[in-house]
Amino acid sequence: MMKGLKKWRLFSLLAVMMVFLSGCGEDYISTLKPSGQVGKEQFNLLMLATGIMTLVVVIVSVIYLLAFLKFRRSKVGENVIPKQVEGSHTLEIIWTVIPIILLLILAVPVVTATYKFADVAAMDEVDENGDKTALTVNVTAKLYWWEFEYPNQGIVTAQELVVPTGQKVYFNLKAADVKHSFWIPAVGGKMDTNVDNLNKFYLEFDKESKDLKDGVFYGKCAELCGPSHALMDFKVKALSPDAFDTWVASMKATDGKMPDKTSADLGEATFAQSCMGCHAVSGTSGPGSKGPNLTAFGDRNRVAGFLEHNEENLKAWIKDPGQFKPGNLMMNADGTAPIYGDLTDEQIQALATYIMGLSVEK
């Protein structure tokens, strides 16, 4: 008896903890605190489904308890058999029609929302000059980082998606290697990025991210993609439309920027010799680089998507990327050394200082 009571106590404790923990979501990452129109509609659908399921559970539980109490042996006796309702057309109609109604109540808004979120026809609309009017971002998921290209603006960046508030942002989603999944929990999503086909959808950002913890929304890969899947994060900086236009202009201003192998700056020279084959420092360099575009690295929120953004962590990353993200493509095939070879401590220090200084916002 006591053993059974202990189990019920544990169950009760877990139930209470779930209630309290459900309120611990942060604005920058919680689906329960949506910050965009898509996220809000998806949240409403979640609440509708939860409400229907709760109603069914409550009604079934009440019927069960009433039957349990009304026909218990201590009340009706040992040899009493309750009236049998097998074959009752009335009851069969009731428990057939009610589930159909509940399914329709849930299905209609879900199907409507699905088609609404899939409507990306505005991506092809143009103004009188033939310029596309919608903001489109081409997202390419790679092992284990994200590339963001703005084709209409002619710029590209990585790891930190920058978007304006108050308008629809359309996404073309694809993967460069294996299947990934693009998800910004607080804003909406998610959707797979595949190698063989292009997925499209849109999101809306209702508020700027500057007042959030770390000043960004958190993005995730929601598809198991390899040993460092859990570390395949990206960040989203939501700006006012004017601030976004300023950022775009700053990115365009880096056009033609190229590190010099003969520079007196050891960091720049080292970058030109060891890093330039995979990384660009111009926001207009175009998509398809082997490694993330580093034009705005100094403005980012994290090193490698998850390490605190400081020079010490960057030096540790440069020295041994495989220690932090197993399976990343900065390492040789055997995983024993970086593809750019060994660098001296002096070169690593200078390189980290140079990369941290790459900024379009300062």
Score class of each variant (00 low, 15 high):
D196E: 07
A264W: 08
S61H: 06
L173F: 03
T193C: 09
T31Y: 11
A158F: 03
I184H: 10
S12R: 15
T54C: 08
V111H: 01
K362I: 06
S240D: 14
G256D: 00
I93C: 02
V162G: 03
K362W: 10
F171I: 08
N152I: 06
T262V: 02
V126N: 04
G154K: 03
A238Q: 00
Y28C: 09
K315S: 12
E160N: 10
N79I: 03
L65P: 10
D124A: 14
M356A: 09
I59V: 14
K142G: 12
G215I: 03
H180D: 09
L231P: 00
K319E: 13
E160F: 07
I318V: 11
K7F: 06
E86T: 14
W183H: 12
N172K: 15
D206S: 13
G188T: 03
L307W: 10
T344Q: 09
S181R: 15
A316P: 14
T54F: 08
A316T: 09
D255L: 03
E41R: 09
V58K: 04
P99T: 04
L239P: 08
V139H: 11
I98N: 07
A176Q: 04
G39T: 01
S282R: 01
T50C: 11
P109V: 07
C278S: 05
T96K: 12
A141G: 01
A15D: 06
K33V: 07
E92R: 04
S359K: 06
F148L: 09
A176W: 01
K325C: 10
L106K: 00
T31G: 12
A158G: 05
L135F: 10
M53Y: 13
Q273V: 15
G335K: 05
P34N: 11
G87H: 02
L294H: 04
R300S: 08
V85M: 13
N138C: 10
A107N: 02
N313E: 14
K70V: 12
P287T: 13
N197H: 06
E26V: 01
A67Q: 14
G219Y: 09
S274A: 15
I105P: 00
C275Y: 11
G215Y: 04
E86C: 08
K261R: 13
A186D: 03
L32E: 10
Q323K: 12
K237D: 02
M251L: 14
L91M: 07
K3T: 13
A352F: 08
D214H: 00
D124S: 12
S282W: 04
K132T: 10
V137I: 13
A134D: 05
F11N: 12
V85L: 13
Y28L: 09
E223P: 01
K132D: 08
T254S: 14
